[in-house]
Measured scan of single mutants.
Amino acid sequence: QLRFETNGEEQAKKVLEEAKKHNLEAHVTIENGKWVVHVK
């Protein structure tokens, strides 16, 4: 499982879109005010 700390909602959405293009499972959590994308 990969973990990407992003700078906010915009970047998190871009990472999610990329993951979906590659048929990867991804979800976002907010940790300590940071948007974190988890990709399987």
Rank of each mutant, 00 (worst) to 15 (best):
E31S: 05
K21F: 09
F4I: 15
V39L: 10
T6N: 03
H22F: 12
K34F: 09
L24M: 11
E5C: 14
Q1T: 15
Q1R: 10
L16H: 03
A26H: 02
L24N: 03
R3A: 05
V39M: 06
G8F: 12
N32E: 07
A12N: 01
H22W: 14
L2P: 02
E10L: 09
E17G: 06
K13S: 09
N23K: 10
A12Y: 05
K20P: 01
L24G: 03
K34S: 06
T29H: 07
L2I: 13
E18H: 14
K20N: 08
L24R: 08
E17T: 08
L24S: 03
G33F: 02
H38C: 10
T6A: 11
Q11V: 07
K14V: 11
E5G: 03
R3K: 07
A12R: 01
N32W: 03
F4G: 02
A19F: 14
A19G: 01
N32Y: 06
E9S: 07
K14F: 11
K40W: 15
E25P: 07
K34N: 06
F4K: 02
E25A: 11
E10H: 08
N32I: 01
I30P: 01
H27F: 15
E18A: 14
E5I: 13
T29C: 11
L24E: 02
K40V: 14
K14N: 07
G8Y: 13
L16I: 12
K21A: 11
F4E: 02
E9G: 04
Q11E: 15
H38M: 12
V15Q: 05
E25Q: 12
I30C: 09
L16M: 13
L24K: 06
V39E: 01
L16D: 01
Q11H: 12
N7M: 12
E5N: 05
H27Q: 09
K34T: 09
A26D: 00
E25V: 13
V28I: 15
N23Q: 09
V39F: 10
T29G: 03
A19V: 09
L24Y: 10
V39H: 01
N7D: 15
K34V: 14
E17L: 12
V39I: 15
W35L: 03
L24P: 03
R3S: 07
L16Q: 06
A12W: 04
V15H: 05
V36Q: 02
A12E: 01
F4N: 02
K21Y: 09
Q1H: 14
G33M: 03
G8C: 14
I30N: 08
K34P: 00
L24V: 06
E10D: 11
T29E: 09
I30A: 04
E10N: 07
E25M: 11
V37G: 00
K20A: 13
A26K: 00
N7H: 10
N32H: 07
I30L: 10
A19E: 01
G33Y: 02
K40Q: 14
G8Q: 11
K13F: 13
A12I: 03
Q1D: 14
G8H: 12
G33H: 03
N23R: 09
V15K: 05
V36L: 03
I30G: 02
L16T: 04
E5P: 05
R3D: 04
V36D: 00
W35Q: 00
K14Q: 13
K13A: 11
E18P: 00
K21I: 07
K40R: 12
N7V: 10
H38S: 08
T29M: 08
K20I: 12
E5V: 14
A26S: 05
N32S: 06
V15W: 14
N23M: 08
F4T: 03
H22N: 12
L2S: 08
H22K: 10
T6Y: 14
E9M: 09
A19T: 04
V15N: 02
H27W: 15
I30M: 11
L16P: 00
E31P: 00
K40A: 13
N32L: 05
K14H: 10
T6E: 04
A26T: 07
R3V: 10
V39W: 06
R3T: 08
N23L: 07
Q11K: 04
K40S: 15
K40G: 14
T29S: 11
E5S: 04
